[in-house]
C-alpha cells in the first residue's frame, strides 16, 4: 500500500475471486448535506474490513447503505452479484445475504431470546419450527449463552443481548455481517465478551465489515482498515501499515487523539 490521497480507492481486497461487496462511486445526501462522497470500496470473500474514523465521518451511513437501511443517491452497490436497486426483490435478496448487528442491539423485547433468533428463519426462509430452534440453540451455544434461550431481552445484560443479536443475524446464514459500532453502548467489562465472539466469527471465515472504535480489535482481526473522515475514504491499509506507518496527516491526527 503506497501513498493514499484523499478519497482513496478501497477497491483492492484481500483474497481471490470476485468481490462479494462492490461499492462504486457512491454518494449519499441528507438534505443538502453530503454524507458520503464518491465512495469506492470492495470487500472480498472471508475478508474482515474494519472502518474507523471520527463521529460524523459517514462510516455508519456507509454500511447502512449496503443493506438499504439508507438509500444511496448515486453510484452502484452490488452484493453477491445482486445490484441494489429500487426493486424490492433485490433489496430483500440482499438483506437475506447480509446480517446486521446494531449499536443498540435492537432485539425484539416482546419475544423470548429463542423467538428473536427463529423469527426471520421461520418467516423469511420458511424453516420449520423444530429445525429453526435447533439452529438457534446451536448459535446460542456458539455465542456461549444457550442457558438464556427462554428469557426475554430485558432480562439479559448488554453484552449478552449483543451476543444474541449476533446469533440472530447468523441465523439467516448470511454471507456478510455488518457491525455498526457493536460495543459502543456496552459497559467496559462487557466489551470483551462481544469482541471475543466477533473474533471467533472472523476466525471461522465470516466476511465482516465492522464500524468500531476498538483499535485493539482492528489491529488483531482486520485484514484491512479503512479510515474515513468527512464522508470520504482517507486512507486504506493493513493494520500494520495503518497503525505503525500512516501516510495521511488526517489519519495521524485521528490516531494521536485516540491512542
Amino acid at each position: 500500500m503506497t501513498d493514499a490521497t484523499v478519497n482513496a480507492d478501497a477497491t483492492a481486497f484481500a483474497g481471490t475471486g470476485e468481490a462479494i461487496i462492490k461499492v462504486e462511486n457512491m454518494d449519499k445526501f441528507f438534505g443538502d448535506f453530503q454524507a458520503l462522497k464518491n465512495i469506492n470500496m470492495n470487500v472480498g470473500h472471508k475478508e474482515v474490513v474494519v472502518v474507523i474514523g471520527p463521529s460524523g465521518s459517514g462510516k455508519s451511513t456507509l454500511i447502512r447503505c449496503i443493506n438499504r437501511l439508507e438509500q444511496h443517491d448515486a453510484g452502484r452497490i452490488v452484493v453477491d452479484g445482486i445490484e441494489l436497486s429500487d426493486d424490492i426483490r433485490n433489496i430483500q435478496e440482499i438483506r437475506k445475504e447480509t446480517g446486521m448487528v446494531f449499536q443498540s442491539f435492537n432485539l425484539f423485547p416482546h419475544l423470548s431470546i429463542i423467538d428473536n433468533i427463529t423469527l426471520a428463519p421461520r418467516q423469511v426462509r420458511r424453516m420449520p419450527k423444530a429445525e429453526a430452534e435447533e439452529l438457534a440453540m446451536e448459535l446460542l451455544t456458539r455465542v456461549k449463552i444457550p442457558e438464556q434461550a427462554q428469557k426475554f431481552p430485558g432480562q439479559l445484560s448488554g453484552g449478552q443481548q449483543q451476543r444474541v443479536a449476533i446469533a440472530r443475524a447468523l441465523a439467516m446464514r448470511p454471507k456478510v455481517i455488518l457491525f455498526d459500532e457493536p460495543t459502543s453502548a456496552l459497559d467496559p467489562e462487557m466489551i470483551k465478551e462481544v469482541l471475543d465472539t466477533m473474533k471467533d466469527l472472523a476466525n471461522e471465515g465470516m466476511t465482516m465489515i465492522c464500524v468500531t472504535h476498538e483499535m485493539g480489535f482492528a489491529r488483531e482481526v482486520a485484514d484491512r482498515v479503512v479510515f474515513m473522515a468527512d464522508g470520504e475514504v482517507v486512507e486504506v491499509g493493513t493494520p500494520d501499515h495503518f497503525f505503525d506507518n500512516p501516510q495521511e496527516a488526517r489519519t495521524r491526527l485521528f490516531l494521536s487523539q485516540i491512542l
Binding site: 443493506n67 438499504r68 437501511l69 430483500q92 438483506r95 437475506k96 447480509t98 446480517g99 446486521m100 446494531f102 443498540s104 435492537n106 432485539l107 425484539f108 423469527l119 426471520a120 418467516q123 423469511v124 440472530r168 443475524a169 439467516m172
Partner: peptide
C-alpha cells in the same frame, strides 16, 4: 425506530 430497522435488516417483508 431500531425495531423497524432490525426487521428490515432481517429481510422481513
Amino acid at each position: 425506530r431500531g425495531q423497524v430497522e432490525a426487521g428490515n435488516a432481517l429481510a422481513l417483508s
